[in-house]
């Protein structure tokens, strides 16, 4: 549904997006992950047709965004960063406006409005002025606007920003369930979000894609991935002494021990070896598990926060 090729965007001397390419298909939820200033919003603004790219090409459902902008934008629902809305309108007025702009009127506008209001839990404030509402509500209002025409493509720039934990959870489940029938692109700098909602994630840093894969792929890149954490009745030192395949160990708090297998040994084989060794040494094993790796370790090793310097 979306094909972006070699997108570049410069603001004066500042290169905000530097050769980003990606594709997004129906049924996928693609997460843009990256520190502030990485270029996530700028990329989304180009994909939605707000900012013209300095170079590169965008196809929306095979329509070239540069030559068929209106037709392409019809297919997209967009929640911009900071969720702007016309604060002088009521919630209902604003959503009706959005529906009309999307070519819906009369009964179909009414139905679309009802559906969006229900999905975003806006019923209690429907007739209130937007300027009187909290940030969480405003966010959901703009979100409702983005789904009002039931678009095939949803582009959400930090959709959970400013929401409380319950609302965050709701929005994530909503994204996940809508992702089955749509193509969704959303950005975040919250790592759990990627695990909770994405089928695929792209890590962006300083305008470039530095990693691309499923959340599991990314986690597997963590130095912790595949390590074994074990909690035992007695120190394991004697049991480990004769065991092959241990690359290194490190002591954690509460007497837990983390054991890293050598490269050619799988974690499962090491677990079996460890259990056998523990039994032989008369050590009771309370808990043993294989680490999946943590996304934030990967994130930190791949990205450099807030780029201030100007690159040529």
């Amino acid at each position: 549904m979306i094909q972006a090729r070699n997108l570049t965007k410069t603001f004066g001397p500042k290169v905000a997006v530097d050769g980003i390419s990606f594709t997004l298909e129906k049924g996928e939820v693609l997460g843009f992950l990256g520190p502030n200033g990485a270029g996530k919003s700028t990329t989304m603004r180009m994909v939605t047709g707000y900012l013209p790219p300095t170079s590169g090409e965008i196809l929306i459902s095979n329509l070239n965004l540069a030559t068929r902008p209106v037709a392409a934008r019809r297919l997209i629902g967009y929640l911009p960063e900071n969720a702007p809305s016309y604060s002088d309108m009521t919630v209902e007025g604003f959503l009706r406006f959005a529906a009309n702009m999307r070519g819906l009127s009369g009964e179909s506008a009414k139905r679309a409005l009802g559906r969006a209001v229900e999905l975003c839990f806006l019923q209690p404030v429907l007739h209130q002025g937007i300027e009187t509402l909290s940030k969480g509500y405003r966010h959901r209002i703009c979100f409702a606007q983005s789904i009002i025409h039931d678009p095939d493509i949803l582009i959400l720039d930090e959709p959970t920003d400013g929401l409380d934990p319950n609302q965050k959870h709701e929005v994530r489940s909503l994204i996940k369930s809508m992702g089955r029938t749509k193509a969704i692109l959303f950005s975040t700098h919250i790592l759990e979000e990627v695990e909770a909602a994405c089928t695929r994630a792209v890590v962006i840093d300083r305008g470039r894609i530095v990693a691309n894969g499923t959340p599991e792929d990314l986690k597997a890149r963590s130095p912790e991935a595949g390590a074994i954490t074990i909690s035992t009745s007695k120190p394991m030192d004697s049991a480990l002494a004769g065991l092959a395949g241990v690359r290194k160990t490190s002591q954690l708090e509460n007497g837990r021990l983390r054991i890293y297998p050598v490269e050619k040994l799988s974690s499962a084989e090491l677990v079996a070896g460890l259990l056998a060794a523990a039994q032989k040494a008369g050590v009771d094993v309370y808990d043993i598990r294989i680490e999946e790796g943590r996304l934030d370790d990967v994130f930190r090793s791949l990205t450099i926060s807030d780029t201030k310097e100007v690159r040529p």
């Binding site: 603004r45 939605t48 047709g49 707000y50 902008p69 209106v70 037709a71 934008r73 019809r74 997209i76 967009y78 911009p80 900071n82 702007p84 809305s85 016309y86 604060s87 959005a98 702009m101 999307r102 070519g103 703009c142 606007q145």
Partner: peptide, 14 residues
């Protein structure tokens, strides 16, 4: 000022 320009110009209008 309100940031709605981005909203407006990404809707299907010229």
């Amino acid at each position: 000022r309100m940031g709605t320009l981005e909203l407006l110009l990404t809707m299907p209008v010229t």
